[in-house]
């Protein structure tokens, strides 16, 4: 937690005053070459990067959770196996491949990146939402029905709050994958911090690679941490922390 705040402070300072960090980056720049990326402001690229992720993640979250709610309602049993099969299949798709396949369909720029992020982001959210709804004990659902909660009340007062931690874990995963894929999106001319890294590789300016790479990594770590805090908050009091290893 403290480390994350420190990382956030350093990242913020770098974005606000990149010039102050020039001496640190100088050894990595080619002699006489530019030290700081000069074709766009780093803060602007970082903002555009995060905006792209947010714009893709919001619809995938709504659709992913909505689909999970739909297939877990009574009477939708037939859809569930197909949904699971599609999810399993989808998870073997490399995000880069999804991005690449979106290019012929949607052209260049932010749109193919947005669509790729949206489509790929759906899967972890849908799957974790399914797991979340599945984790609500049968006895709790039966009790809710038996007490006379309407289906709506059951969903909003019981199932969603109990599924929320797992849904947020899925969002966390989607957000981190999206941030990463968005960086590769710079190869299809989406404006993100990936642009700085690619420019650095192309002209062999390691100072560019370093500032772009560290900023992207810092954003990813901070996003991961932020969603982790949210998921912990949503956990019912007393339940044990993170699932998985």
């Amino acid at each position: 937690m403290k480390a994350s705040l420190g990382l956030a402070a350093v990242t913020g300072a770098f974005l606000a005053m990149p010039g102050a960090f020039e001496p640190l980056l100088r050894p990595f720049a080619p002699p006489g070459g530019p030290i700081l990326y000069d074709r766009a402001s780093l803060a602007g690229l970082a903002a555009a990067h995060l905006l792209l992720v947010a714009a893709a993640l919001l619809p995938s979250a709504l659709l992913g959770v909505g689909l999970a709610i739909w297939v877990t309602r009574p009477g939708q049993g037939r859809v569930l196996p197909l949904a699971r099969a599609v999810v399993t299949f989808g998870q073997t798709l490399p995000p880069v491949a999804v991005l690449a396949i979106c290019v012929p369909i949607f052209g260049f720029g932010a749109l193919p990146a947005l669509m790729a992020l949206f489509l790929y982001g759906l899967l972890p959210i849908f799957e974790s939402a399914l797991a979340g709804f599945g984790s609500v004990p049968v006895s709790v659902r039966t009790a809710a029905d038996g007490m006379g909660l309407t289906p709506r009340q059951r969903l909003f007062r019981v199932e969603l709050p109990l599924a929320a931690p797992l849904i947020l874990e899925g969002l966390r995963l989607s957000a981190v994958i999206s941030l990463s894929t968005a960086a590769i999106g710079s190869t299809v001319a989406a404006r993100t911090l990936g642009e700085v890294i690619i420019a650095g590789i192309n002209v062999m300016n390691l100072a560019f690679v370093l500032q772009g790479g560290l900023l992207t990594a810092a954003l990813a770590l901070l996003l991961h941490e932020a969603f982790g805090v949210l998921a912990d908050r949503a956990r019912p009091p007393g339940s044990t922390a993170h699932p998985g290893p």
Binding site: L179, A183, I197, L210, G212, L214, A217, L221
Partner: peptide, 16 residues
């Protein structure tokens, strides 16, 4: 934390 680092950043940083 390593998994969280985007691939393009990871590959770029490993150049150094």
């Amino acid at each position: 934390a390593i998994q969280t680092v985007p691939s393009i950043a990871m590959f770029g940083l490993l150049l150094l």
